[in-house]
């Protein structure tokens, strides 16, 4: 078992989720409640990572953020930041790839809040932030939890985009999926099997937990 890779994956998943969830709330709320020009285009753009192969996203990120690219040079020159083949680059890639997995369930749960409840909160004198924190977020919680679990599991198992963007640098970009791949390449099936089983068990248990929690919350609504 490659514990370093496992720890790196968990770190990557946790940081990505911490960025993704607030970002998804900010994006999902107007998508659920407001009408604005270009809304359909924005929704389509958010969904792109669902249909595009991760390697393609990884390729574009590599090309656009690499040290030869304009953005890459800008980041290097002014902020001394290098994204490609670095952990920070993996975080950016994971966030981008997982946006649809975070936005969709949160948007649906915002949409599920009855209009009357939101009207009542406005008529109770609550401002936008109070409405969000006291009424909407507690009611959208099942969606947020689903997004959290989905994104965490997804980042944990992310392969294509990680490989393209980060390669396989131990302790920096070598996540557990890359480690499994490397082990298979080296014909170490036992190590690959152990790590795969761990990911499988994790995926099943988190999904079961989410389903159970959502059901419990639904009962109390």
């Amino acid at each position: 078992m490659d514990w370093q890779s496992l720890w790196l994956s968990i770190k990557l998943a946790a940081i990505s989720v911490l960025i993704l969830i607030p970002l998804a709330v900010i994006i999902a709320r107007p998508l659920a409640y407001e009408r604005f020009p270009g809304k359909s285009w924005l929704e389509a753009l958010i969904m792109v990572p669902l249909v595009l192969p991760p390697t393609v996203i990884g390729y574009y990120l590599l090309v656009s953020l690499g040290s030869d690219s304009f953005i890459g040079q800008l980041l290097q020159q002014y902020f001394d930041v290098q994204l490609v083949f670095h952990f920070s680059g993996l975080v950016l890639a994971s966030v981008l790839v997982n946006i649809p997995f975070a936005v969709q369930p949160i948007q649906r749960s915002f949409e599920a809040i009855p209009q009357e409840v939101r009207d009542a909160s406005a008529c109770c004198g609550m401002g936008r932030l109070k409405q969000l924190f006291r009424v909407e977020l507690p009611l959208a919680w099942p969606g947020i939890l689903t997004a959290l679990v989905l994104c965490f599991s997804h980042v944990l198992g992310e392969f294509g985009v990680v490989l393209m963007m980060g390669g396989s640098i131990a302790g920096e970009t070598k996540t557990i999926s890359i480690a499994i791949y490397d082990n298979v390449q080296a014909f170490d099936f036992s190590a690959a099997g152990n790590m795969s089983l761990l990911l499988l068990l994790f995926a099943i248990s988190t999904l079961a937990l989410t389903t159970a929690l959502s059901r419990r919350m639904e009962r109390h609504r």
Partner: peptide, 20 residues
């Protein structure tokens, strides 16, 4: 004026209670 500024009491058809 926003609903907040109007300071009114509103009872929607299905009451709009905060379920939580």
């Amino acid at each position: 004026l926003s609903p907040q500024q109007r300071h009114l009491g509103y009872v929607p058809q299905h009451y709009g209670l905060f379920p939580n």
